[in-house]
Design a protein around this nucleic acid. Structure first.
Lengths: 179, 179
DNA sequence: GTGGACTTTCGGTATGTACAGAAATGACTG
DNA sequence: CAGTCATTTCTGTACATACCGAAAGTCCAC
């Protein structure tokens, strides 16, 4: 199966575009989309041909996807080549992506904010305004990341369940914290 | 106040870098950081000078920030120039950013997924595998966005409270959905 | 109208990222 | 141990985007 249907094509192209917006390399995202749709594992050659990208590129991209843990190598008997397959678990995929984004987009900011607030606490200048602003932001980030980490630690079943809370959020918050 | 202290500088530079990772133009983010830290409104000239960027750039960036609703114009008596100030409400800021990201990073994907699934339902080929994969992903996206929209509709107080759920998420899900 | 503040538009340049192709490495076979 | 195939690393180039500076345009007060 090296020929893509129109729908597969549409999805893969779109996934590539969205990838760039999600901070993910376009071809990495395209390869992931292809593997996600592929009923059985593909080798590097097939991927390169199907998507019309250089093999070297495929190699690098696969390595990255494996690093994230959403693509893994499998072998077929009597075939030396590596074959690759993607996890089909959508929730797991996005958990990984969110982790990565947190690492790149939140954690550095947390570090800088902490360092800034520390600096301002030492030299007690007339910078009280700046300090208040930064402390406020730091507190916000800490609350959000704390909550996120708690989600991550939830067993998969509980996490999935949470998505089904739709329509009950308001009541929920009220009941726990007292309206 | 046109001279920045070392801490202000550190924060503004970092905010600019993070901006790029959040899909926000670097100077837009820097200007926002500056206004967030500024105790009182600044005019375009001051901003350009403080950050060493072209006035034209400042103008465009301010327009964008105003479009998001996190920066607004204020006037001082006897001064014809516009002055700008940022909201100091961190929660509100991130609500805006999240909305924008959803619009750019989720909504288009939802549209494409719906269209793909629709296509595959018409022509009932041997593409059942693809259809299942895409339907699964579509369902996931719909659940997540549904939940998100519900959050957005929460009154600010309730939303803030939600951040304080730390340590109680697990119990919460159990109690509502039945362990 | 005239002048000032601000905005918009338009090349030109710089910077960063993605990517292909070549070369190098490594793994296995005969 | 030579030869073949797959993979990885390296390097130059192409492309997109951000940005500046200058000039034209808009708006408003006087």
């Amino acid at each position: 199966m090296e020929k893509l249907g129109p729908v597969e094509q549409k999805f893969i192209l779109h996934w590539g575009e969205m990838g760039t917006r999600w901070g993910i390399n376009r071809t990495v995202a395209q390869i992931h989309a292809l593997l996600y749709l592929a009923p059985e594992p593909l080798n590097a050659e097939q991927i390169a041909e199907t998507l019309s990208v250089a093999r070297s590129n495929v190699s690098t991209s696969l390595k990255e996807l494996q690093g994230w843990g959403i693509v893994r190598v499998v072998h077929a008997l009597g075939d030396r080549r590596d074959h690759f397959e993607s996890t089909k678990d959508v929730w797991e995929m996005f958990r990984v992506v969110l982790d990565e984004r947190k690492r790149r987009e939140i954690d550095p900011t947390l570090a800088v904010l902490r360092s800034c607030v520390a600096d301002l606490s030492k030299g007690r200048k007339a910078e009280t305004y700046t300090r208040e602003r930064l402390k406020e932001m730091l507190e916000f980030f800490e609350q959000v990341t704390g909550l996120y980490q708690e989600f991550q630690r939830l067993p998969p079943r509980a996490a999935r369940k949470f998505l089904q809370l739709k329509g009950r959020i308001g009541k929920l918050v009220d009941s726990v914290l007292g309206g």
